[in-house]
Design a protein around this nucleic acid. Structure first.
Lengths: 115, 115
DNA sequence: TAAACATTACAAGAATTCTTGAAATATACA
DNA sequence: TGTATATTTCAAGAATTCTTGTAATGTTTA
């Protein structure tokens, strides 16, 4: 992940309805939800929801799968981890205890390390 | 942290120079850096840097302290943790193993829990 | 107090993003 | 095949944010 890619992700999340959609899908897990249900849940028009879902998709934070006449959207969890990692990379010049004892561990776990 | 507050944080970070400034300050740790040094590091004009620092400050992600004729900026790490936590809250309906085994642990650590 | 330095405030044009509705596309079902 | 459902595409006006330069503020040092 580079700076530009991260800005794209953050901009995608920096919108009231899109953030609500993202968090809804995070809660939902890998199975995701169809567009219509998402639109209803965040009180968006079908057109508006489609626009916002496309933005999140374009950023790589979610992905779409057609299932019959529905299109289901689900979070791309790997991408989310990459983004969270990027934000706190190399914190405190390698002395993360300076900003609270837990951030480095959190960062490691976000990267997929298990200890 | 609520949706609106998180959107403000994310919008503050969703800009090339502001993200570069944020990551620079994350690396720097609690001591922070003066505005002039920040501007130089990210290749911004003094006016531009000031504008962007104000945005990050307004979002609560950094804070300013005057030291003599300099104004030092440093990351507000608690706020960062709150934001990261908010993004992944209640993932996978309480079964975070569904989105990779490490996300729940990372989230807990971001919240300040130690195990 | 005067001069120099660091930083911010203000203003206005440029660029981007958001919103909305109508029409188009794709699939399912009778 | 024809109709209903789910979702997207397109277009255009509205709103917001970005950028840049100039002037103003507060602080230090001589």
């Amino acid at each position: 992940m580079d700076n530009t890619e991260a800005v794209t992700c953050l901009a995608a999340l920096a919108h009231d309805q899109r953030l609500a959609i993202f968090r809804l899908l995070v809660r939902q897990g890998p199975s995701g939800l169809p567009a219509g249900e998402i639109a209803e849940a965040v009180d968006a028009t079908p057109t508006g929801a489609s626009f916002h879902l496309k933005e999140l998709d374009r950023a790589g934070l979610i992905h779409a799968t057609r299932v019959g006449r529905y299109i289901r959207y689900a979070v791309h969890f790997d991408k989310v981890r990459q983004m969270l990692t990027f934000l706190t990379e190399d914190c405190c010049q390698g002395n993360p205890e300076l900003c609270g004892p837990t951030l480095k561990k959190a960062r490691k776990l976000c990267k997929g390390e298990t200890k």
